[in-house]
C-alpha cells in the first residue's frame, strides 16, 4: 500500500463523504448553538461582573475564573458521565452544547468586559448627564461602541468553540470527527480523517481570514 492509497484513497473518501457531511452538519449545529448561547450568556455575565451588587459580582468573577481554568474535555466528561449520578441525564448533544456554552460564556464575558472598560469615562458621564438609565446607557451608548472593539476577539472565540466541538466525539456525538473515526475503522483506512481535516479547514479558514480583516479595519479606523 502506498501513501496515496493510504491517506488519499479516492474510493474510501467517496464512500465516507455522506457520513462526513452529516457529521459536518452536526458540528455546525453544535457550534452555532454553543456560540449563540455563549454570546448571550457571556454579555449578561460581563454586565453582572461589572455592575451587579458586590456579592453577585464576586460570584460572576469566580464563575469566569473557574470556567476559563477547567479543561473543556474534563467538563464534558463531568457533564455527560457524572451528572447522571445526581439524576441529571442529558443527551450527548445537550451535554456537549452545555459544556461548550459554559466555557464560551466565561471567555465571552471577559471579552465584553474588556470592551466595555475600553469606552472612555466621558461617554458614561455624558449618558448619565442627559438622564439615561442604566439599560438605555448600555443599549444606546456603551454597547454599540464596545461591540465594535470586541468583534475581532469574539470571532476568535467563535473559531475556538467550533474547533472544540471536535471534543464532543468523546461523548458519542456523531459530529464530524466521530464520523471520520468511524468511517476510518470501517474502511480500515485513514482517508476519512484527511477528509474531515479538509472540511474543518473549509469551515474555519474563512473565519480566520475574517478575524484578520476585522483587525485590519479596526486598526485603520483607530489609526
Amino acid at each position: 500500500m502506498n501513501l496515496i492509497d493510504t491517506f488519499f484513497n479516492w474510493a474510501v473518501f467517496r464512500d465516507s463523504l455522506p457520513a462526513l457531511l452529516q457529521g459536518l452538519w452536526i458540528t455546525i449545529l453544535l457550534g452555532v448553538v454553543s456560540i449563540v448561547a455563549g454570546l448571550v450568556s457571556g454579555l449578561l455575565m460581563a454586565l453582572l461582573r461589572l455592575y451587579a451588587p458586590a456579592p453577585v459580582r464576586a460570584l460572576a468573577r469566580i464563575y469566569i475564573d473557574v470556567f476559563r481554568s477547567i479543561p473543556l474535555l474534563v467538563l464534558l466528561v463531568l457533564v455527560y458521565y457524572a451528572l447522571p449520578f445526581v439524576g441529571i441525564r442529558l443527551s450527548s448533544f445537550t451535554s456537549a452544547a452545555t459544556a461548550l456554552t459554559l466555557v464560551s460564556c466565561a471567555y465571552t464575558a471577559e471579552i465584553f468586559r474588556a470592551g466595555i472598560e475600553a469606552i472612555p469615562k466621558g461617554q458614561f458621564e455624558a449618558a448619565e448627564a442627559i438622564g439615561l438609565g442604566f439599560f438605555s446607557s448600555m443599549r444606546d451608548v456603551i454597547l454599540p461602541q464596545a461591540f465594535r472593539i470586541v468583534v475581532p476577539p469574539l470571532t476568535s472565540n467563535c473559531i475556538n468553540v467550533l474547533k472544540d466541538t471536535a471534543l464532543a466525539s468523546v461523548v458519542a456525538m456523531p459530529d464530524l470527527l466521530k464520523q471520520a473515526t468511524q468511517a476510518q475503522a470501517l474502511s480500515a483506512n485513514p482517508t476519512p480523517l484527511i477528509g474531515a481535516a479538509l472540511l474543518y479547514l473549509l469551515l474555519l479558514l474563512p473565519l480566520v481570514r475574517l478575524v484578520g480583516y476585522f483587525e485590519a479595519r479596526h486598526r485603520a479606523a483607530t489609526r
Binding site: G122, Q123, A126, A129, S136, Q145
Partner: peptide, 27 residues
C-alpha cells in the same frame, strides 16, 4: 440639569441629530 463637557463627549457612533435626539427619545 444639562451638562456640556470640556471634551464634548459626543456619542461617536451616532449622527449629530441622533446625539441630540437620544435624550428626548429615551428619557
Amino acid at each position: 440639569v444639562g451638562m456640556v463637557f470640556q471634551s464634548f463627549n459626543l456619542f461617536p457612533h451616532l449622527t449629530a441629530l441622533a446625539n441630540v435626539a437620544l435624550g428626548p427619545l429615551r428619557v
